[in-house]
């Protein structure tokens, strides 16, 4: 009796244990089932490299190159903004800040991580967008730059907290050894601690960028959503994620348009998969 109960419990625990694998497979499977249907009628190359995204025109065109470039543009710009600020902040929190301030700063970073993206998007829409419009004297403030600034903000908590962990993980002895030969605190940081923490910091940046590429609502509210190949940072762009969010509501289940949004989902899934696996590799290299 006791044995049977123990047996049932252990099996239940095991099944729950593998649930994560099951869900990942299900997600991928259902993206594939729907997304691949697109390629019965649309050539894969035309999909990936086509320069025209107009799914509701006659005849429709499903080229996602503008969307890929839109995502890439916004993500890279966000990276340029958020990487130095994020790493700098992490160093400040981990190495420079006095204990009391440190706790406060960490709480602030956690707060930022917790703010729903829709709230950030809303704030971006009512503050950032008009500012960009005025500063650059543009017809509209809904631009790639607005999206990038907002997204860099959203990448910060990820970059800061993982970089911080990487800095803490550097053995104390390294720092003490640097002090022992007369280095200043700053020399110890940039000559000894930063190089030792490099793989972790790299992972932090990767995961931060993963967050940016996958972000949907905030970016949709401030980038203007024009599916055109972007020529500068000051024009509207549309990202992969925003396309799905904006258009799924108007599609008919089972239509080409519907399938094409799932096909975009496959691309996003694969990108996030690669980013997370790479980051994990750098985080746990031993």
């Amino acid at each position: 009796m006791k044995k049977l109960r123990e047996f049932i419990i252990e099996k239940t625990i095991f099944l729950s244990g593998i649930a994560s694998i099951l869900f990942v497979l299900l997600i991928f499977l259902f993206l594939l089932l729907n997304g691949l249907s697109l390629f019965k009628t649309v050539n894969f190359k035309d999909f990936l490299l086509g320069e025209n995204w107009s799914p509701v025109c006659e005849p429709p065109s499903f080229g996602i190159l503008p969307l890929i470039l839109g995502s890439l543009f916004v993500t890279l710009t966000a990276a340029i903004i958020s990487i130095p600020i994020g790493i700098g902040s992490a160093i400040y929190i981990a190495e420079v800040a006095p204990l009391k301030i440190k706790e406060f700063l960490k709480a602030m970073v956690e707060t930022l991580a917790a703010i729903p993206s829709i709230v950030l998007g809303f704030i971006g829409m009512v503050t950032l967008v008009p500012w960009i419009k005025r500063i650059f004297n543009l017809p509209t403030g809904l631009t790639a730059l607005s999206g990038a600034i907002l997204l860099s903000f959203m990448a910060l908590p990820t970059i800061i907290s993982i970089t911080e962990d990487a800095l803490y993980a550097v053995p104390k002895a390294y720092k003490e050894a640097a002090f022992a030969i007369g280095a200043t605190h700053w020399q110890a940081i940039h000559r000894v601690i930063l190089p030792a923490a490099y793989p972790g910091i790299f992972a932090a940046v990767m995961l931060g960028m993963g967050r940016v590429i996958g972000e949907t609502m905030a970016v949709m509210m401030v980038t203007g959503n024009a599916p055109l190949i972007p020529k500068s940072l000051l024009v509207p762009v549309r990202t992969l994620t925003a396309t799905i969010a904006a258009e799924m509501g108007e599609t008919v289940a089972g239509s080409e348009h519907y399938f094409s949004l799932f096909a975009i989902g496959i691309i996003l899934f694969i990108i996030s998969f690669i980013i997370n696996i790479t980051a994990e590799f750098f985080l746990h290299r031993e």
Partner: peptide
């Protein structure tokens, strides 16, 4: 934990 939230929506 890394799958974009919109992909969860699709799923």
């Amino acid at each position: 934990s890394g799958v974009p939230s919109i992909v969860y929506g699709l799923f």
